[in-house]
Nucleic acid binder design. Structure first.
Lengths: 141, 141
DNA sequence: CCCCTTTTGAAATCGATTTTCAATTTAATA
DNA sequence: TATTAAATTGAAAATCGATTTCAAAAGGGG
């Protein structure tokens, strides 16, 4: 099942309603790719759907996060960003501190080591974040 | 040289002044251990030094970060936190999502793998953050 | 001590986030 | 299909932490 179905399920389970706005916002969100802020998504929508308010975009993104189809992230620029949780697979980020480019990666061995570290401390991990900040190839003068 | 000396050096180099407030705030900061927010440090100081304003604490913590003796961190609760940079050694965090407890750890192998991943993408890493969120032993019912 | 620069503290401002509230929409039920 | 209760919407207001302003105070070299 895709993220759209997953979201519909969540709405049903919670007794929430499926609305035109939520459909539009979800489509735009998925289409946009990753790492949109509330404001960016709002501005992207406005030309086509000027009737959709900022508060609705804000609330809908929160709802995406609650439903598990998206995750809220903070990359240090003071704005929350959301990324779609494409089934199962998790990814971490390489962030260029010069141009802001974000590259995703995955490394199973690192994840294993994280589990091991947590186990040693008696922790049970539910999620993690690993961000590597530096310069991308283009920005290394 | 300790962090205090390092900070005094920084002030001298930059032509900034050493003040009573900065000394008091630095002492309280170092004594408190890690991970204080501006507000927490301000409240901690207030009973003993009611004359020190919030803005001064705020500015002084920023200054600690600039001088390199502290680092600004965000753990997702919307508040910036500062931790002392005890010489050289870097550490990552295990964060309990229930009680908020923060445990530090270090794993050289993970750092090596991070370097490797970055190299593969052509990135040159300057810093990273690795936070593991989950339940601490006490909070696992 | 003088003077210039930096710092301080209270209050104002800022920008993002979150809430409020009346009007509207959804969807279950009759 | 009409009714109705509950959820949603959008604009505006409120909130929250972070940051700046500005006049008064303090540091520190000469």
């Amino acid at each position: 099942m895709g993220l759209k179905g997953q979201f519909q399920n969540y709405l049903r389970e919670q007794g929430l309603k499926s609305t035109r706005q939520r459909d539009i916002i979800l489509d735009a969100f998925l289409e946009a790719g990753v790492h949109l802020s509330t404001e960016e998504l709002y501005l992207k929508l406005r030309p086509y759907h000027p009737h959709i308010g900022y508060a609705t975009v804000y609330r809908t993104l929160k709802l995406f996060a609650e439903s598990g189809i998206a995750a809220e992230r903070h990359f240090g620029d003071g704005q929350a960003r959301y990324e779609a949780n494409s089934e199962e697979e998790h990814h971490d980020h390489l962030i260029c501190t010069d141009c802001g480019k974000i590259v995703e990666f995955e490394n199973h061995r690192i994840e294993q080591l994280q589990e091991q570290v947590a186990r040693e401390q008696g922790f049970c991990i539910t999620r993690h974040r690993l961000d590597l900040y530096g310069l991308c190839p283009e920005c290394q003068t």
